[in-house]
Amino acid sequence: MIRFEHVEKRYVTGRAALTNFDLEVGVGELVFLTGPSGAGKSTALKLVGLLERPTGGRIVVGGIDLTQVERQDVPAYRQRVGMVFQDHRLLLARTVWDNVALPLIVAGTPRRELKSRLRAALDQVGLHGHEQQRALELSGGEQQRVGIARALVAGPDVLIADEPTGNLDPTLALEIMRLLVAVAQAGVTVLVASHDVHLIAPLGARRLSLDAGRVVGDAVG
């Protein structure tokens, strides 16, 4: 599903975020990218979401060579990828319903289809009944679940999550991680960046260790 081939990413400052980075992730697989700050975890996710472009190598996601995607085609590609962020990136003044509906509206989904798909996504993350609450009124964990519902509602092939539990207490963090495991079990390829190895160890998922932009370990559990 996702293949990195000798990928390099060097920022204009000259700092190398990824060096000769190789990775292969299968359909419906859950992979955690771990490592210290600056290891290249977020950069790898940004490259999969086409939020950044590699400076070398090749990235193929679902058969699409990302180095060949034209600027005008980037929005169509991003609609296929669900993204979850540490700071949730919600429209705080809007309701849960409005926030989760955004990817469907952006993708041109008819209004009459919205209701059923939104309900399904909110049920999946356990937020049924919170539809009309403003995002601002929710707890950190609930906000993150809204973020996950928003990432899933359009039925993406790939879900990327950058430190999704960074701002949460251990109980809520584990809850979010279990949710991501369930998403992967439903057939979505999930790539999660996290520095919290203690949190992800019990999940028994594949773990890729990064350091200074290089893969230094690839293990399960």
């Binding site: 060949q68 085609d73 929005p75 169509a76 609609q79 041109g108 989904t109 008819p110």
Partner: peptide
């Protein structure tokens, strides 16, 4: 590389027209 088609472009023309009107109204 061939143009990437988004979900809306894969829908029938009539439905796309309806969505277009909905999006303009919004």
């Amino acid at each position: 590389m061939a143009k990437l088609r988004n979900a809306a472009e894969r829908r029938p023309l009539r439905q796309r027209a309806l969505v277009w009107i909905e999006q303009h109204c919004a």
